[in-house]
Amino acid sequence: MSAFFEAVGNVAFAAQILRVATPILLAALGATIASQAGCLNMGLEGIMLFAALTGVYVSSMTQNASWGAWAGLLAALAVGALLGALLAYLVLHLKTDATLAGVAINVIGSNATVFLMYVWTGSPGTSASQKSYVLPTVSIPVIRDIPVVGTVFSGQNVVTYMAFALVAALAFFLYRTPLGLRIRGVGLNPGAADSVGINVVGVKYLAYVLSGVLAAMGGAFMSMGYVSWFARDMTAGRGFIALAAQAMGRSTPVGSMLSSIFFGFTMALSNSMQSLSIPFELIEAMPYACTILALSAYAYQQTRKKKQSSGG
């Protein structure tokens, strides 16, 4: 047990939680906005992979160390928006089942990125042979000098700060702006929203596109912050974890953030506890098992609430 606290009490560990949570948080925010509009974005994983490859490719093509990574990020976000729109088109116009359309996007993302990477680099495994650039880390002037806090909150990648800022931004957008209100209205009751003149399909399109952009930012972080290359299937299920984080966070930005941090915690734990006597695989399974428990507990509580309100 003391070894556990040694691993967890470490300051670097706390910093790592934020780093590991970043891509999950961004994708979970993407899932959140889609869900608020009554849509399911099952394609987060594929969108993240496309964005990760796009970011590396564009930043590498610019051959520019000062703004190359930013160009890569922008291109990745654009690809995310396009894929979000594609998913919206499939679901809203072609009436494809949202789950299956998402599965298709994931299959395409997982395989097309490998195919394109091979065409580009000649390697089917990683893009490490090509020089690409990473997004900068930010050292915050005053905070970095405070002993523990500085190590945790300063010196993170710029995308990590953006991700947490986006939690506040998205909360404000959803609950305090007319457009956010419309999105939630469409999610709650599309018929009613339609009857007061809201363009339901348009709003859902917007939600899918924004969802794609947010997931893409998470994907770009993977290849231009977390590491500095693209690798086959490098998101490793983070798009699915993000869906769980959104469901656990009850589709609110703050809830999604908390559950993403929880996932970050367990994943960082599995990284740093490999030296301990607890088998790595069991720690690795923990975040997923915890999700199942948390989701079940939440669903249980909801059902009981419903029963009580209908019974009493």
Partner: peptide, 29 residues
């Protein structure tokens, strides 16, 4: 879980996949 408490079978099953993988690898390793 879906029947009793209306928990999303989609998300639960995605998570179960990883649990199955890790537990299997644990047993073998």
């Amino acid at each position: 879980l879906k029947y009793r408490w209306n928990a999303s079978e989609l998300v639960i099953s995605l998570m179960l996949n990883y649990v199955c993988f890790s537990v299997s690898m644990y047993v073998i390793k």
